[in-house]
Write a protein that binds this DNA or RNA. Structure first.
Lengths: 314, 314
DNA sequence: GATAATAGTGACAGGAATTGTCATAATAAA
DNA sequence: TTTATTATGACAATTCCTGTCACTATTATC
């Protein structure tokens, strides 16, 4: 094999095994150890972060960095990747230990200059916004790790300013709207609940035996949500603006129906304990909504309106 | 220069110039044309997408793909990049022509197997959610292009189901909550307004002379908003929940002040014509806000509340 | 239709770079 | 001390790379 090819292949091999000895590679490539030594030095000079130790149990390893082999990206792809990484900067917490900025810098650094120019021009003209929250979620990697390795955690969780302890087995984590959430099986409720990660104040491993939740993950967990409870029926007409406002709310998706002309209606069952919440939301929609059902919800709205009136009349 | 180095350098060079001839390279590298031909063939075999045409004005070009040279990423960085790109799949429209999935595949393909394993384990346990919208925004690249190149566009824009034509000069585009927006100078209003991209139905270049808005971009455009006009002063106390709700609204950023304990206040000048808008928004915040100034705004709120009461009392 | 500019191939000799071997250090674990 | 490992240098053998030359093929332009 000619040297140039060997070098490229060696780059990959060295990347795969993170630890290896010279004679090992010599066998694999069918060349002498001396040649391997010379090649490894060249790889070093090319930027592959190699590190060696002499003596028994010594050998080479690649530092924690890995080399990405040359990849052919189209310009569009490269730009898309750049902005995808760029968007990570909006997140105050991430489940990865790295600052995304270091990855971004490397990527930017290695772009051909004309793509760099294009990116520069776009940088202040395109953005993927995530609302900035001050709430930080320090336990993301622990939660994620528990989800992957099927571990039970004992957490202190804050609800309405009160702290309580719970045993949970996380299913995964996701971020939406600037906050992180973790759906997890809660041993206290014996059911899958969603926890807000910034309200999880303390996490320790629990001694409880984990359930086998390997087949439950972020994409299929919804199946488990409640159907039972004590509910009332909601029906509300929406103007075009009303529809547009509702579209912004993910949790309404299943209730929202849109007509051809852009107007629509909300229809579905609302848990009795959520009436106040819905009342507030519907008031927020103002005259863009006309609530027709049920009386309980309308009463809730009236009551809340009266409270507000009261406040503003003082 | 030894061949192996020449090949790597050639990879970059070929990437920089997208079009070149054999003799051009031969000069640059100080080798014969024959050698260049041989090298180019090797590059081809290594996956660099080269394409050649004979005859005058012929020559080589790289297909639209570019080669990314070998980059050293740490494992954490690689994983972060993967999920950043993965998150793009939530967007129904993007200003790039590419499907992000192709970039993702390439990236994944070239990862060392152990990182691939790690990604596989995480894939269904981590997500960056953006609400899925049915509304698609087909003109994103046109708008972005206009923002970069300082062009004026004539658009048909839908408000309240009515179509109108406007001349705008885009400042940039951003996505939030699954929808795309474009702040732009509107020649009809003679001011910077934010347009929802999915409501822009038709875009054609306009003959109007562009303004010089090169120094106005997504990050500083707030500064330019009105200072003159007929305004009233807003001051409103916010509870912790109130602050969180306001943080979700980008346009409030300049008015929002947060205290150590998470509570805060809104303070700033509000154009008289926006009082109704603010009244609705503040009512939406319910008891999480206590409006203390100015009387005009409080009156606006009361009036709107009364209207609502009226509706719900029927 | 001639001309010039371009890519593409094959053969071959000379030269340059690569390789293997051997000798020898140095180091650290067992 | 022994052994497994990296590390370096020198040199001859040999592989491979390179340049040259002689072609062919294609196409834009005059």
């Amino acid at each position: 094999m000619p040297k140039s090819k060997r070098l490229l292949e060696m780059m990959m091999t060295v990347n795969r095994k993170r630890k290896f000895t010279v004679s090992e590679l010599a066998n694999e490539f069918g060349v002498s150890g001396r040649t391997i030594l010379r090649d490894l030095q060249e790889l070093s000079e090319l930027g592959v972060p190699l590190y060696s130790e002499v003596g028994p149990h010594g050998g080479y390893h690649v530092l924690k960095e890995r080399i990405l082999p040359p990849i052919a990206f189209s310009e569009e792809e490269a730009v898309a990747i750049f902005f995808a990484i760029h968007a990570l900067r909006h997140h105050t917490s991430l489940p990865f230990e790295t600052e995304s900025s270091s990855a971004l810098n490397k990527f930017y650094q290695f772009m051909p200059p004309d793509i760099r120019d294009r990116i520069d021009q776009m940088k202040r003209r395109v953005d993927f916004v995530t609302p900035k929250r001050q709430a930080s979620s320090p336990h993301l990697s622990t939660l994620l790790d528990a989800a992957i390795q099927q571990k039970v955690l004992s957490i202190t969780y804050e609800t309405r300013g009160q702290q309580s302890t719970r045993e949970i087995q996380p299913i995964g984590i996701y971020t939406k709207n600037g906050l992180w959430y973790s759906p997890a099986y809660c041993y206290q409720h014996q059911d899958i609940r969603v926890f807000r990660c910034d309200r999880i104040h303390d996490v320790v491993p629990s001694a409880l035996t984990p359930l086998d939740l390997r087949d439950i993950h972020l994409e299929n967990r919804q199946v488990k949500t409640v159907e039972d409870q004590d509910t009332v029926h909601l029906f509300a007409e929406l103007t075009i603006e009303g529809v547009q406002a509702c579209e912004a709310e993910l949790w309404l998706a299943s209730m929202l129906h849109v007509r051809q002309d852009g107007s629509g209606w909300l229809e579905g069952n609302v848990s009795r304990s959520d009436i106040l919440f819905f009342a507030k939301f519907l008031i927020g929609l103002g005259k863009e909504v006309s609530v027709q059902h049920s009386p309980e919800i309308i009463d809730g709205i009236k009551a809340y309106l009266a409270e507000l009136m009261n406040i503003y009349s003082q």
